[in-house]
């Protein structure tokens, strides 16, 4: 167990193992997203109420899932970094933040676009969209704070503290926004209601969600490797490696 944790500490080991893992996740992500897209766009039946506009669900929901999961993963990485001083965890947290912000943006954009045919307006202060918007600001805060420090180590630790504070607040924000929404707009039509979906509708959604998660893992592995090259550029093994790469 200890040996394993010590291995995890070593960027060199991570660099080697991630090179082997990465292709599987890329293949899984590409296959799942492609099949999910074709199935969801062309083969899934249209919704009886929303028609074909409901197909936006196949990008909206996976992006929204990922937006929240990435923040939680980032906070977990922050805890690992702060408690065990494992640098890899911080590198992963650093590269997760922009992807999380991108996913939040996709969820917001697709939600707003979906709003036009369903609500007749680009933006509504819907509970889900509002908490997504706040999540986007939280991501911006973490990214900006990391960049604001002159020393990388201070920036890392400050961003870690903020990620932990943020992750404690996310459920509170989510529930308070939901409560606020029910207070002001009782019983509006929610976009992703808990109606029983037929298999042909939710199977592609499941594929898309899994595909997005694979994409997140693959991209995080890839960019963490870049981050290792950046931060460990003075190490002998990285320089030897660069000599071999073309």
């Amino acid at each position: 167990m200890w040996a394993f944790i010590n291995k995890l500490r070593s960027p060199r080991w991570f660099y080697a193992i991630s090179a082997r893992l990465q292709p599987y996740f890329w293949v899984a992500a590409t296959a799942l997203i492609l099949v999910g897209t074709v199935w969801g766009l062309a083969f899934a039946p249209a919704d009886y109420q929303q028609g074909n506009s409901f197909r936006i669900i196949y990008v909206h929901v996976p992006a929204a899932f990922l937006a929240q999961s990435i923040f939680v993963s980032m906070a977990v990485a922050a805890v690992v970094f702060m408690v065990w001083k494992i640098k890899i965890a911080d590198m992963a947290a650093a590269v997760m933040a922009p992807l999380g912000a991108a996913m939040t943006f996709i969820a917001l954009f697709s939600g707003a676009v979906w709003g036009v045919p369903t609500w007749g307006t680009w933006w509504m202060w819907d509970a889900r969209l509002t908490s997504m918007l706040i999540l986007l600001f939280l991501y911006f805060g973490v990214i900006a704070l990391r960049g604001a420090f002159a020393s990388r180590d201070s920036g890392s630790r400050a961003a870690s503290v903020l990620a932990m504070v943020g992750v404690i607040n996310i459920p509170i924000i989510k529930y308070s926004v939901e409560w606020w929404h029910t207070l002001h707009q009782p019983a509006t039509f929610t976009v992703t209601g808990r109606v029983a979906m037929p298999l042909e509708m939710w199977a592609p959604l499941l594929l898309m969600v899994l595909g997005f998660y694979s994409f997140f893992i693959a991209l995080t592995l890839m960019r963490t490797r870049n981050e290792i090259l950046r931060r460990e550029s003075r190490k002998r093994w990285v320089r030897d490696l660069a000599g071999g790469e073309h």
Binding site: I134, F137, L138, F140, G141, A144, L145, A148, L162, V165, G166, N169, I172, I173, S176, V177, W179, W180, L183
Partner: peptide, 19 residues
């Protein structure tokens, strides 16, 4: 930067305060 960090975290207090 301070306002960017803090304002999102203020949301629940604002909601229940005005509530």
């Amino acid at each position: 930067l301070l306002s960017l960090l803090v304002l999102p975290l203020y949301v629940p207090v604002l909601i229940f305060g005005t509530g």
